[in-house]
Nucleic acid binder design. Sequence first.
RNA 1: GGAGGCGUCGCCUAGUCCGGUUUAUGGCGCCCGCCUGCUAAGCGGGUUGAGGAUAAAACCUCUCGCGAGUUCAAAUCUCGCCGCCUCCGCCA
Length: 428
Amino acid sequence: MIDPRLLRETPDRVRASLAKRGLSDEVVDRALAADTERRDAIATFEAKRGEQKQLGKLIPKATGEEKAELLARTKTLAADVKAAEAAQNAAEETWQSAIRELPNMTHPDVPDGGEDDSVVIETVGTPRDFAAEGFEPRDHIELGRILGAIDLERGAKVSGSRFYFLTGVGAELEFALINLAMEQAREAGFTQVIAPALVKPRAMEGTGFLGQAADDVYRIEGEDLYLVGTSEVAMAAYHSDEILDAASLPRRYAAFSPCFRKEAGSHGKDTKGIIRVHWFDKVEMFVYTTLDQAEAEHARLLAWEREFMDKLELAYQVVDIAAGDLGLSASRKFDLEAWIPTQGKYRELTSTSNCTDFQSRRLDIRTRDDEGATTPVATLNGTLTAVTRAIVAILETHQLPDGSVRVPRALQKWMGGREVLEPVIPVA
RNA sequence: GGAGGCGUCGCCUAGUCCGGUUUAUGGCGCCCGCCUGCUAAGCGGGUUGAGGAUAAAACCUCUCGCGAGUUCAAAUCUCGCCGCCUCCGCCA
């Protein structure tokens, strides 16, 4: 939720932000009208209520005819108060639903436009040249099969399409990635967290996932619970309804959780392999800080993501995501895209968003400023490792002609010291 | 899942049976001031959060876990829900 004052005082800035995202500004007028109506309704209710309280004080002291008269007056007043209160609540609700439709304000430097308008701001490393090395790279599906690392057939048998089993070195790779990520996080001062993957509607709504993204969210039948698509959801709601001590900021968490995504609307995309799956595990950085520190923290999150990418010895790009592709909550977002050899292109491996005070306003997370007044905090998130896509990039990038895969140095200590993963079945 | 108990402004707590000068009591902590070689003690004041109004205030409304109801009036009575604790049952 954006700052209501921003809407009230500078609606044109809000309109401009919507235009940048390619969205209609129709909501702005609706929200402004609702705001006016709401304030009128509040004034009406408070006037009635005040009158009622004044009269109510006189009643215990009054006697006889005077008392009877007071009771008669307050009785009709009580009905007015009730009606005014109902009107106020209705106006409040209209206003709330209007302002909650508004996405976050975009950062001024965010590129205009949609998905295709995102800007590559840096390219790190060079994609490996398999032609020069004289062999055709195998895709991660084939490598996963011959290493005994990924079992897609049984994943489909047991759970359906877009599911998988990680087996043998595949499972080991997941634990290694998680351990490496958590080690880095701990050294950077993060608090490690295992977060619940099932959350209440409040958490989903507060992080902005029940708006336009609702189609992609699993709901538990017969329960008021959702499966998270990222631990960002649980970690944002973690401090909901709290006033955080300013001295405790920034609070940095590194949360592990499984992530579940319906992938509605991505039929036909990445149908094979484990690039796009309904479930995967992830280590997510989540930070609460002050608004004035948010941008600097965003840069740090990006730096930590790059550090992790470097440890995996991958070639990647840093992408400044265009306004139309930011989602509801982010004011700015950077993706790290790693080179996937058999696809001949860079694919998103991690992502970091600055959600400024958008989520904290919805979830009521505040701190105290220098004057001691409460003020919303900023929330930011960034992926350290999304396991499945990391495995895809590692297998394909570090494969050798015989179907074995070199283990990046940083992962070796978590893989029993092995430098190379060997095929477990004969390679053609 | 069953039975019982409990949720009051950071923490502890009075008030709830018997509805109304309760603008919710007191203590601890914290903040400001006075006093004092310094510190402590002592004394005085302040200290939930949200919203409305305002140039800013004064001011007004809401807030006793949440919601609904009864009533002229609800921390207090009634109902539902949520959370915590104890016991029982079940179980990684």
